[in-house]
Computed example of a mutant assay.
Amino acid sequence: MGYSIAVADHNFEEEVLAKSKEMPVIVDFYADWCGPCKMLSPLLEEIASEYDCVVAKVDVDQNQQVAQAYQVQGIPDVKIFRDGEVIEGFVGVLQRPQLRELLAKCNIKSAIDEAIAAVKQQEEAGKVEQAKTEFLHLLEKYPQNAQVTLEAAKLFVRTNELNQAKEIIDSASSDDRNLLDAFSSIKALIHFQEECQNDSGDSEVAQLYAQACCLAVAEKYQEALDKFLQVVSKDRKFKDDGGRKAAIAIFNLLGNEHPLTAEYRRHLTSVLY
């Protein structure tokens, strides 16, 4: 687990260069008057609490020597140090997914990602009750972490404990539109599970919709999308445009960068128009 620290000209060598030989150091060159810096700061604090790294904050107005040494011109200017050298960086504000991708590229480990992966391995090994207990512990430890919230809720959907899943999602909050979409998609998974268990009815469309819901719960998203698009094609009004809404919920769950999202957005558009 990392930490955040204010660094100045006089201790930059000790707190950044020397420390970076032990673990990565993310240096945030900022200023109090800088609006984008204030937008980036909470995300970097989140990184410090989750990742095995140090976030070193350098006020460029108060520490011009080190700012000049590293040719800081625009701010926020973020530079990642390892073994005393800059290995990566960016100027401006990155969104959470892009920042996480950059850290992964730099082989900077997330304690939360590793914990989630370990819990998933427990579930895959059939230790479902243990996995649920571990996720509840992670929720207590990281109550504001969206990834923990999402993965925990998904597990309880898979085990058909829908009230627990609803409670987890309802307790979550965020001002990030992408995360809000993800939370909504979990609510959609809960709906899918309920529809999967209900009597689907005799009509072909009703059966297609129920089958698609079961596939979505099982995380067989491509097969689910194929069937939801069939629902849209056969009866757009079914369940108040339910096929289209369900497909969009899966897109939100997968994220905009997932190849299935791009491919099936095109398929959905062609079916609609």
Rank of each mutant, 00 (worst) to 15 (best):
N163K: 11
D176C: 11
E195W: 06
I80C: 03
L254Y: 07
S184P: 03
W33G: 08
F90V: 00
I116Q: 05
E85G: 03
G74W: 00
G74A: 15
A67E: 02
V157N: 01
V232C: 13
K132S: 10
S233V: 00
V157H: 06
E13Q: 15
N198P: 01
D61W: 06
D52W: 04
V54N: 02
E129V: 12
W33S: 02
A125E: 14
Y209N: 01
N63S: 06
C106G: 07
A246L: 10
A182E: 13
V205L: 02
Q121C: 10
Y30Q: 05
A153T: 03
F12Q: 01
E223K: 12
Q95S: 14
E101Y: 10
P36C: 05
I87V: 15
R236A: 14
T149L: 00
G243H: 04
A18I: 05
I250C: 06
E195P: 00
V119M: 07
S171M: 02
Q73A: 14
D175S: 13
Y221S: 05
A172K: 09
Q193C: 13
V217T: 07
K166S: 14
N107A: 15
P24G: 08
L189R: 12
Q64H: 02
I5P: 02
A31K: 02
D202R: 10
R96W: 08
F29C: 02
L94F: 12
Q98L: 12
Q193E: 15
L180D: 09
E123T: 07
Q147N: 11
H10G: 07
L268K: 11
G201F: 03
L254I: 04
D59S: 05
Q71E: 08
L102D: 10
A67W: 01
P42N: 10
D9A: 07
A131D: 04
P76A: 03
L44S: 05
N11G: 05
L136Q: 13
A6H: 05
Q222P: 00
C37V: 09
Q62D: 08
W33T: 06
E114K: 12
D59K: 10
E45W: 01
A165R: 01
N107E: 15
D61L: 07
I250H: 02
Q95N: 15
D202A: 14
Q121V: 04
T133H: 10
A188P: 00
D181H: 08
A188D: 08
Y3I: 02
P24T: 04
F156N: 07
Y264W: 13
F29V: 02
